[in-house]
Design a protein around this nucleic acid. Structure first.
Lengths: 198, 198
DNA sequence: ATTATCTATAGATCTATAGATAATGC
DNA sequence: ATTATCTATAGATCTATAGATAATGC
């Protein structure tokens, strides 16, 4: 029985890690508190010493999910060469398709967030802007136009990943991702050219 | 108490209509059988004379959802003028954003379908191909390239709608849709030009 | 003394089934 | 006689709470 404040904080983080992974793979209603706490190595009784309600866990989990996304996403800045192309290749990979628990929260939780309150949606929007602004910066050129083109590229990426995950045959789904990688990279090159020309 | 075979078939369809609308707005686990049957004007006891299990209802509902999508989607062929532009304007409208129950099932149910079995995913794929092939036909040019470009346009449309639904402020969400409409139509014009040139 | 976690359980809800009721359809 | 639907309920699961237990931290 862990009892120190440090251990409680570790338990809290462990519950959030489990919740994020489970909510992303099974949806907000896809797991009960008993199984969730068991996966975090605890019993269900202690849950309410960590969260005011199940709903409070959902809200905190969405924040936690996007905080994780930020960490993963920030790695792309360390890539040498064409960061934008590297990002597209990674986002539209079969590895990303198959790892829903660690993958993009905008795709995994998008539909659930649509049904949620503004507290949850605000977290989504903040991350959306971060991503769009990064894409716009990579595209270069005048800010307003760059942001518009960034939205297009981002939408195409989210949409293609969403489609690939719902196609039954992994080979066919992989072919869709491959096509999307080529198409989106070509689109990015072309929009970048347009923006540089202005 | 309705008892004829015709009335049973009507009840069955009513249950499916309710299930599709509820699953799309609240997710597969967002509603129980009692509320569902009540919304269909029945009591919960009769459910199992219509479906072998809750799971069987989910599978049948996904088929029903995409059958409805087909009917709505087919209307675009009656549009005079630029059918592709009309389709993009309609898909990326605020009306579509706000009507999840009657809107695109690929977006509303995509994440849930990712988590489902191949029986459900096959229904999704069939509808995906129908949509992609229609887009490719509208783009014109060599089939293989047209299908690749169609995937890009379709991905951008699904992604933009998904983003717009998760943005809290309706005005900001509307601005995103407006940008996406312009961008995707411009992209369609350009890809069509490329294909015609080949 | 305080508190992080555990065991136990209340009360609501959910899926599924059993048997009754009131129509249809031969 | 058959059957579409209803009422009633069993059994599982889910959220939330109460009180016990065994550590920490003053």
């Amino acid at each position: 029985m862990g009892h120190s404040r440090i251990e409680k904080s570790e338990s809290h983080d462990r519950i959030l890690d489990v919740a994020v992974a489970q909510f992303k793979t099974r949806g907000f209603n896809g797991i009960g508190l008993a199984e969730l706490m068991e996966r975090a190595g605890l019993t269900h009784g202690g849950f309410y010493k960590h969260f005011a309600s199940r709903d409070a866990l959902v809200v905190e989990s969405v924040s936690h999910a996007f905080a994780q996304d930020r960490v993963i996403f920030s790695r792309v800045d360390k890539v040498a060469g064409d960061r934008l192309a590297a990002h597209i290749d990674q986002y539209l990979s079969t590895a990303h398709r198959d790892e829903m628990a660690r993958g993009c929260s905008m795709v995994a939780l998008g539909a659930e967030i649509s049904r949620s309150g503004d507290d949850v949606k605000n977290v989504y929007e903040e991350y959306f802007q971060l991503r769009r602004d990064w894409l716009a910066k990579e595209l270069g050129g005048p800010k307003v136009q760059a942001e518009r083109h960034a939205l297009t590229i981002m939408s195409a990426m989210l949409g293609a990943l969403s489609i690939a995950r719902a196609i039954p045959d992994p080979a066919q789904s992989g072919a869709i991702l491959e096509t999307a990688r080529k198409e989106v990279k070509a689109l990015a090159r072309q929009l970048r050219g347009e923006l540089r020309a202005e």
